[in-house]
C-alpha cells in the first residue's frame, strides 16, 4: 500500500448485532488499492458478518466504515454496490428463476470499466455457451464463476468474496485462483473470506486473523510459512 494514499477500505471499531446477539466486537481492518486481503478464522468468528456489515445488508452496526474516504455506514444498502463494491456471498446468490445471461446482466452497471461479456467468457471459459442454462443448474464451481462474473460486469473494482472455494473440487479451486490472479493484475481490490489457507496464500497479500468478532492478528503473505504454527493454533479445533 503506498504510504501517501489512504486505504481503499477502512473499517474501524466495527460492532454489529444479529438481533440481540452481539457478533462483531470492534473489527478494525483496512484494504489498500489493488490489494488482496483475506479474513481467516474459525466458523462463527464473524468473517461473513463483517462483509454483510460492510455491504449494509446487516443494518444493526456501529463504528466507521470508510470507502474511498467516504463514510458508508449511513448509505442505503442498494447504494453501497453503486460505489463499485461487488459482493459475492457465500451461497453465491444465483437466481434460480433466471438463466445464465439473465443472471449476468441483472445488476446495473455502476461504474465505467465493467467487463464486457467477451472478457468475462475469456476469464471464465466454462460459462461460454451456457447462456440459456438456468443459473442454478450450473455446477457449484460454475455458479461461483457466474457470481464473480456478475459483479465484474457491473464495473465493481472492489470485491468482497466470501469463501469462493467452499465445497469445490481442487481442479476448480485452481481455476478460480488463476482467475483471481488475473483480476489482481488488472488492479482489482479484493477482500476475501477463506478457510483454505493454501488457496489464500496463492493470491493474497495479507491475512487478518479473526476471532470472536475482532481482528486478533495480521500476517503478511510472505511471512505465512514462518507463522504457520501460530496460524494453525488459531484455526485448529
Amino acid at each position: 500500500m503506498p504510504a501517501t494514499d489512504k486505504p481503499r477500505l477502512q473499517v474501524d471499531n466495527l460492532q454489529a448485532w444479529y438481533d440481540e446477539s452481539h457478533v462483531l466486537h470492534g473489527m478494525t481492518l483496512n484494504v489498500g488499492d489493488g490489494e488482496i486481503v483475506t479474513l481467516i478464522g474459525r466458523n462463527g468468528a464473524g468473517k461473513t458478518t463483517t462483509m454483510r456489515a460492510i455491504m449494509g445488508v446487516l443494518r444493526k452496526r456501529q463504528g466507521t466504515i470508510r470507502y474511498k474516504d467516504q463514510d458508508i455506514v449511513a448509505l442505503a444498502p442498494h447504494k453501497v454496490p453503486r460505489l463499485g463494491i461487488g459482493y459475492v456471498p457465500e451461497e453465491r446468490g444465483i437466481f434460480a428463476s433466471l438463466n445464465v445471461i439473465e443472471n449476468l446482466t441483472l445488476p446495473p452497471v455502476t461504474q465505467p470499466g465493467g467487463m464486457s461479456l467477451n472478457e468475462i467468457f475469456a476469464l471464465f471459459p466454462n460459462l461460454q455457451g451456457r447462456n440459456r442454462t438456468i443459473g442454478t443448474r450450473l455446477s457449484g464451481g460454475e455458479q461461483q464463476m457466474l457470481a464473480i462474473a456478475r459483479v465484474l460486469r457491473s464495473g465493481a473494482d472492489f470485491i468482497l468474496l466470501d469463501e469462493p472455494t467452499e465445497g469445490l473440487a481442487p481442479v476448480i479451486v485452481d481455476q478460480i485462483a488463476v482467475s483471481l490472479q488475473i483480476l489482481k493484475q488488472r488492479g482489482l481490490t479484493i477482500l476475501l473470506v477463506e478457510q483454505n489457507l493454501q488457496f489464500a496464500s496463492a493470491i493474497a497479500d495479507r491475512h487478518y486473523v479473526v476471532e470472536q468478532g475482532e481482528v486478533v492478528d495480521e500476517v503478511q503473505n510472505h511471512a505465512l510459512a514462518a507463522n504457520m504454527g501460530k496460524l494453525n493454533a488459531y484455526l485448529g479445533v
Binding site: P89, G93, L106
Partner: peptide, 18 residues
Amino acid sequence: HVLAAIKENEARVTSLGI
C-alpha cells in the same frame, strides 16, 4: 427479470445495487 429476482430473494437483489 429483476421482478423475478426480487420475488426469489430481495436482500440478494439489493446487494447487487438494485
